[in-house]
Amino acid sequence: MAYNVPNSRMSVYSASSVSLNSPPPSSTNVSRFSLAGTPVTPVNTSTTALSTTANNKTRAAIYDRNLNKTRTAQVSLSAYAFLFSEIVQYTQKRVSGIGDLERRLNTIGYRVGTRVTELLAWRIESSSKVPKREIRLLPALVYIHTQVWKAVFGKPADAIEKSVEKDDEYMIIDNDPPITRHISIPRDMAQLSCSALTAGIVEAVLDGLGFPARVTAHSVPTDTFPQRTTILIKLDPSVIEREDALK
């Protein structure tokens, strides 16, 4: 497991954060998701023009919707499994190795994670009387273990562990990750873990909270939990330094 430049993926983050800082008109927002039925070239259509052309069927842009509308909504695991399967197949056709595949899945997860961070901040902290942001490492990890996992997977993760050998490594463990439940890794790709997507989500959340880290996923099967997966977090040295200074 090579510890590459921690910010190799910053380009993705900054590319998406540009559009987050200055949200474009809602019509272009919709087209970014390239949903079927949405206009393909909405460059010159304003929101009002869109509503009149589409037979007065005004569909609110996703950013105009109430944040809590889909708070308890659930997504069919089967539908998701098929989507994820296609994502993996699509990615696999365009990479040259397992490491490359995991990196791409990680990048996709990163883009999910940036949105999860923002959404959760609005959902959880906006209703709180004393809105706060996690600034210490352990509460941040617990926040990922419970809040983020609940929002993304509908259940908290199973454990947080600290590496015995290294001070800067932490692990979040899921005994049965829902997104890879139906995936059987072929023998010749044994080191692959499709939970790289989850690792990307965790990496983005940690980055968003100000704890830059390199996050990878590894499957650690046990007899009772053949799908057990460890999300390994290797923190940036600056985080450790800051934690020590705050003590």
């Binding site: 098929f82 399967s85 993996v88 139906h182 059987s184 499709c194």
Partner: peptide, 9 residues
Amino acid sequence: ADTVMKNPF
């Protein structure tokens, strides 16, 4: 359907 069709491999 679960284990074969949802398996990307």
